[in-house]
Each structure stands twice: as C-alpha cells, then as structure tokens.
C-alpha cells in the first residue's frame, strides 16, 4: 500500500500543485513528477464534522486545511484533540476511509 500522498511538481517550471491538474496551473506544461507531501506546516482552519457521510461509524471527524512549509496547501484529517488555528502540525499518512472493505490512505496531521 502506498504510504505517501503526492503533490505534482511541474517538470518545466518546478511549481508544486495539489491536487494535480491536467496542466500546470502556473505554466501550462503537462509533465509532472510526484513530490511526496511530508514535513510540517501551519493549520489554517479546522472543524469537527458530526454529520458524516457513509462509511464512517465514529461520532465525528476532525478535518483541517494546512499550509505546508513546502508552499502547497492541503486538506486532511487531524489526529489532534484540541486543534487551534495557526498551530504547527506534521503530516503523517494513514487510513482515512474504509469503503466497501478497502482502505484508502491519506494525510492525517498530528501536532508537530
């Protein structure tokens, strides 16, 4: 199982984007190389969501948007009891959803 979540790094201008678009949002080129999303960042905003979609049996999910030090921004789950805007967080990869028996992995942030 892939233990990384990748951003797309443009082979011609080097810009990072996430999620990947068909063309580089900066220069329009089509060739990318995967760049693992890892390391630390700053939590921009967060929520505890209680009205959950299918597949979730827990009472709530904690979600957030993180500004990574690498420059990109990502949405992920938070394994943080008392999240605060502006706190430092670190990216890990784990199971974020189980759909029809198969596990989907994705970004889970923990306090840095």
């Amino acid at each position: 199982m892939p233990a990384t979540v990748n951003a797309a790094k443009c082979k011609s201008c080097g810009a990072l984007s996430y999620p990947m678009h068909f063309l580089c949002p900066k220069c329009g080129a089509r060739e990318f190389e995967p760049e693992p999303i890892e390391g630390e960042g700053e939590l921009l905003t967060h929520t505890r969501a209680y009205a959950l979609a299918l597949d979730y049996e827990q009472r709530y999910l904690t979600l957030g948007i993180v500004q990574m030090d690498s420059g990109i921004r990502v949405t992920g789950q938070l394994a943080i009891d008392e999240p605060r805007m502006g706190m430092r967080v670190r990216a890990t990869v784990g199971t974020v959803r189980v759909t029809g028996g198969s596990e989907i992995s994705g970004l889970i942030f923990v306090p840095a």
Binding site: T47, L63, G64, T75
Partner: peptide, 22 residues
C-alpha cells in the same frame, strides 16, 4: 474534490465549518 477532499470524509457542512472559522 474526488481525490483531495472526498476520501477524507469532507462534506459540505465540513467545508462550510472550516470557512466559517476563518
């Protein structure tokens, strides 16, 4: 977003909650 939001359990109320906090 099918890959960058949905798999995390992101719902419309969740997006609205994050927006509201900011």
């Amino acid at each position: 977003h099918r890959y960058a939001e949905y798999p995390y359990g992101v719902t419309l109320p969740a997006l609205a909650g994050m927006f509201a906090r900011l």
